[in-house]
Amino acid sequence: MIYSRNAFSAADEVPMVCVEHLEGAPLSFMTTVAALRMASLTEPAAVVPTTTRTIKQFGRIRLPGAPWRYAITSNGGNILVDGVPDMRWRIDVDAQVRASGATLSAVSAELRARVDDSWVTKFRVADHLFCYLVVKPKAVPEGFLAEWDGWCRRRGWSASQQGRKIYTMPRAVCKSRAVAEVRRRLWESGELVGEAETLAAGDGALDAEMLRAADFAIRPRHGELEKLNWTHPNLTVTRTSGILAGEEIINWFIKGAPATSE
């Protein structure tokens, strides 16, 4: 939904608005049309921003349509209710992670032993849940990701790459579970009624399960899922790429579950 200048593709001349600043500098953008339409999307739908970003990173974003009743951060590890982390959800997630495999400290130590400064610029632990690397993509050793993912999967974790970031994630932490929980709460509160459907959008491997679980899903014609040529019977793929794909996705949401297409 939001894009850095490096991801603008062919849309450089399209009017844009900044929706995220870092240390006072503009960082992420939407087209002006996308911003206006997203603000209107909250009227007919229960919009739930869902991201792999940490709580702090999500807090930098000023998406049109806020404030949000619910938001999902940390790849599903945290549910924010009126901006406040739901500790009951987080306690349950932490228990599932402990029961399903290796600890974060063990995984982090193993990962640190496998990397060096020649191709890694940052090593981060996110919300005490998972870790990720910021890398020089062309300098990543051949076969590193596949080998590291194999090590992780034997221990209840997985690894995937999204642009300059390589995520190492407990398999118990996923967006689809958090989305299902928020949907359950919305039904119980009466905010969802009738035949309300779940529509989802995403572009990375960490989004795949969430897209698969939705009634209808959409992904842009760029990003990790595009490189993987990932598809599913419920999936629409945008015609455009870059920041214009964000605008197309919002139009798709507004229309509501169009026929899927490639």
Rank of each mutant, 00 (worst) to 15 (best):
A66L: 07
P67Y: 01
P67E: 04
W68V: 02
W68P: 07
Y70D: 07
A71D: 00
T73C: 13
T73W: 08
S74Y: 08
N75A: 09
N75Y: 09
N75I: 06
G76C: 05
G77R: 13
N78Y: 14
N78D: 13
N78H: 15
I79V: 12
I79E: 03
I79S: 08
L80P: 08
L80M: 11
L80E: 02
L80R: 12
L80F: 06
V81I: 08
V81H: 00
D82Y: 04
G83V: 01
V84W: 10
V84P: 05
V84F: 13
V84N: 08
P85W: 12
D86A: 11
M87R: 15
R88D: 15
R88S: 15
R88G: 15
R88H: 14
W89V: 01
W89F: 03
R90H: 10
I91W: 11
I91Y: 12
D92L: 00
D92G: 03
D92Q: 05
V93K: 08
V93S: 11
V93N: 05
V93D: 04
V93R: 10
D94F: 08
D94C: 07
D94R: 12
A95Q: 14
A95F: 07
A95Y: 05
A95L: 11
Q96I: 10
Q96H: 15
V97M: 11
V97Q: 07
R98V: 01
R98I: 00
R98M: 02
R98C: 01
R98P: 02
A99D: 13
A99Q: 14
S100I: 10
G101P: 11
G101K: 13
A102H: 06
A102Y: 04
L104W: 04
L104T: 01
S105L: 08
A106M: 07
A106F: 06
A106V: 08
V107S: 05
V107N: 00
V107H: 00
S108D: 11
S108V: 02
A109H: 08
A109R: 13
A109I: 06
A109F: 04
E110V: 13
L111S: 11
L111V: 15
R112V: 08
R112N: 06
R112Q: 10
R112S: 11
R112T: 06
A113G: 09
A113Y: 02
R114Q: 01
R114I: 00
R114K: 02
R114A: 00
R114P: 02
D117K: 14
D117S: 15
D117L: 11
D117Q: 14
W119N: 09
W119R: 11
V120T: 04
T121A: 08
T121G: 03
K122N: 12
K122D: 14
K122E: 15
